[in-house]
């Protein structure tokens, strides 16, 4: 059974039609990449999947791990194993990263019928997962994303993903803002999280990321539609030719 099955998805934001009939199926263990020009709707798709209510789904059906996503609020989707690493992670003053992570991990554990982690177990888990993306200790003590550099925010997103162990990780331009070394570390971290069951949807503008996180499928999104799908070689083609051949009414 597919982990994620999107059929004819249409979505609006602020009254504008952004997604215009997306079809996408992701099976367990697969890595899919989505590329496409600025404003084509990639983040919109990610946020519709994550359950942001400012995006209005007008048509279509999304099945995630056997459930209809329409029935689940954002926090229930997260608990069910859907994780979005944001293009622009939000800064939250006054809540420490540690406190936030503990609340998140325990919410997800409760849903899975697992015991709540006490302070000691939680610290052990942190120590363990911290290695995945080599996150610095001082970032953990600070307020969530507050004053983090662009790259630190992205790394923190992947760290959270490692902590929450989702079934599907959606990475929205996680590579943008990362320096060359950080890109390698974060990609290695994502690869370390790959399992036969865990799937990824990787949104990116650059072929370079896909050299590290090698996708099974690449899709091209233009003006809210997937205009072409292929294997990893499609990303190379795009790198050379750009999106010119799909330039539509928006004149991308």
């Amino acid at each position: 059974m597919a982990l994620l099955d999107i059929k004819n998805l249409h979505a609006n934001v602020a009254g504008n039609k952004i997604l215009k009939g997306i079809n996408l199926t992701i099976n367990p263990g697969e890595v899919h990449a989505i590329m496409g020009p600025n404003g084509s709707g990639k983040s919109t798709l990610a946020n519709v999947l994550a359950g942001n209510e400012i995006y209005e789904k007008t048509q279509g059906k999304i099945q995630f791990d056997g459930a209809d996503l329409d029935d689940l609020a954002a926090h229930e989707r997260a608990r069910a194993g859907l994780f979005l690493a944001f293009q622009y992670p939000v800064e939250i003053a006054g809540i420490s990263n540690m406190y936030f992570l503990k609340a998140a991990v325990n919410a997800v554990r409760e849903h899975r019928g697992e015991e709540q982690l006490d302070a000691m177990d939680f610290l052990d888990l942190i120590e363990d997962k911290k290695q995945v993306v080599k996150i610095r200790d001082d970032l953990l003590g600070r307020a969530v994303n507050s004053g983090f550099s662009g790259g630190e925010k992205k790394r923190n997103e992947i760290f959270q993903m490692a902590m929450l162990e989702p079934k599907l990780g959606i990475l929205d331009e996680t590579d943008s803002g990362l320096d060359i070394d950080a890109l390698r570390i974060v990609s290695d971290g994502v690869n370390a999280l790959r399992t036969p069951d865990r799937s990824f949807l990787v949104i990116t503008h650059y072929q370079r990321l896909l050299d590290y996180i090698v996708p099974d499928f690449v899709h091209v999104m233009v003006s809210g539609e997937i205009v072409k799908s292929g294997g990893k070689e499609l990303a190379l083609e795009l790198e050379n030719d750009g999106y010119a051949s799909w330039a539509g009414e928006e004149g991308v």
């Binding site: 209510e53 997260a78 944001f86 939000v90």
Partner: peptide, 13 residues
Amino acid sequence: EALYYLQTRGIDP
């Protein structure tokens, strides 16, 4: 936005 971010990490509203 902060509330949504927390929600995407499993924390209920």
